[in-house]
Amino acid sequence: LEKNVFYTGAAPNQQAIPAVEYLMSEEGGGAKRFVLLGTDYVYPRTTNKILRAFLKSKGVSDADILEDYTPFGHADYQTIIARIKQFAAEGKKTAVVSTINGDSNVPFYKELGNAGLKATDVPVVAFSVGEEELRGVDTKPLLGHLAAWNYFMSVDNPQNKAFIDKYRAWAKKNAVPNADTVVTNDPMEATYVGLHMWKQAVEKAGSTDVDKVIAAMGGQTFKAPSGFTLTMDATNHHLHKPVLIGEVRADGQFDVVWQTQQPIRAQPWSPFIEGNEGKQGL
């Protein structure tokens, strides 16, 4: 962790771990076997290292975890989906944890549908699929599959309505195509919160001096479009964030099927990885 950086995105315990806990729960289908499928770069590999250790702590054996990676832009998922189908047919309830990034999600979900793997049979929870990724995509193969984020555009509260209205007004003013139907998403909300907290910190410090603003950032709060009041942690510089799990709808939005009651403090150093015990960050 770097003292000059304030982190507005999710730490593993604010997205990946709760998503897998949900899949393992009775409400989430009671998964016993897991496919960890991602794009081949540092984020998916690090997330899956943490998830593998977490699953092991819950008594899931290596034989019940299938881990696979594909390059950026990968489009041919036939072989991988066939492996998932075979893996899922071996008797235990199976779920897929997807850290597939970008355009590869379209052929992945399409092939999932072609293979007849419905969300009720093998649910997929994704950490990189949100409202923007679903724009203009045929959602039929995705219906019922899940995404874990800290915000969804569909949440109903005054802060979110104002956030969406302001973004669409900006889009219209700047001649963005289809300005009336542009969508918000989790990374946008995280950035919006971060900028407002920086503004508040500058006002508190009465200066844009870096060290003074850093000192003023810790403990800043902001009522976010998620509907929760978020706090910037003064120790590890991560936002305390709620966790929401959403189910894909036909219109490319999400129905929230589970959420935390309050924001969760980030664990930048996952306690499930050896050597991280007791690390809190700054």
Results as ranks from 00 to 15, higher is better:
residue 180 D to K: 00
residue 124 V to A: 12
residue 271 P to C: 03
residue 84 I to F: 14
residue 136 G to F: 11
residue 101 N to W: 15
residue 275 G to N: 07
residue 134 L to P: 10
residue 126 A to F: 06
residue 30 G to T: 02
residue 42 V to M: 00
residue 40 D to R: 13
residue 278 G to F: 07
residue 262 Q to L: 08
residue 23 L to G: 12
residue 129 V to Y: 06
residue 199 K to Y: 03
residue 148 A to S: 14
residue 121 D to G: 15
residue 48 N to E: 09
residue 160 N to M: 07
residue 73 G to V: 06
residue 194 G to Y: 02
residue 115 A to N: 05
residue 221 T to C: 15
residue 77 Y to C: 10
residue 107 P to A: 14
residue 111 E to R: 10
residue 108 F to I: 13
residue 6 F to A: 08
residue 180 D to G: 01
residue 184 T to E: 07
residue 176 V to P: 02
residue 281 G to V: 03
residue 2 E to L: 09
residue 65 I to S: 00
residue 21 E to S: 13
residue 11 A to P: 03
residue 141 P to Y: 13
residue 48 N to H: 11
residue 271 P to T: 01
residue 181 T to L: 07
residue 140 K to P: 13
residue 35 V to H: 09
residue 62 D to V: 00
residue 242 P to W: 01
residue 158 P to Y: 14
residue 102 G to T: 03
residue 179 A to C: 00
residue 111 E to Q: 15
residue 190 A to V: 12
residue 123 P to S: 14
residue 30 G to F: 01
residue 160 N to C: 06
residue 215 A to C: 11
residue 23 L to N: 04
residue 181 T to G: 04
residue 262 Q to M: 09
residue 145 H to Q: 02
residue 185 N to T: 07
residue 19 A to Q: 09
residue 130 G to N: 09
residue 4 N to I: 06
residue 54 F to Q: 03
residue 137 V to P: 02
residue 65 I to V: 14
residue 181 T to I: 06
residue 85 K to Y: 12
residue 4 N to D: 15
residue 273 I to T: 01
residue 14 Q to R: 11
residue 184 T to Y: 03
residue 57 S to T: 10
residue 197 M to Y: 06
residue 278 G to E: 05
residue 208 T to F: 05
residue 140 K to C: 14
residue 76 D to A: 10
residue 61 S to V: 08
residue 155 V to C: 11
residue 140 K to Q: 15
residue 165 D to N: 08
residue 39 T to D: 00
residue 200 Q to E: 13
residue 111 E to W: 14
residue 12 P to E: 05
residue 194 G to F: 04
residue 180 D to R: 02
residue 10 A to W: 05
residue 188 M to A: 10
residue 156 D to K: 14
residue 66 L to N: 03
residue 256 V to L: 15
residue 227 G to P: 01
residue 141 P to G: 14
residue 147 A to T: 07
residue 193 V to E: 10
residue 237 H to A: 04
residue 124 V to T: 10
residue 41 Y to V: 05
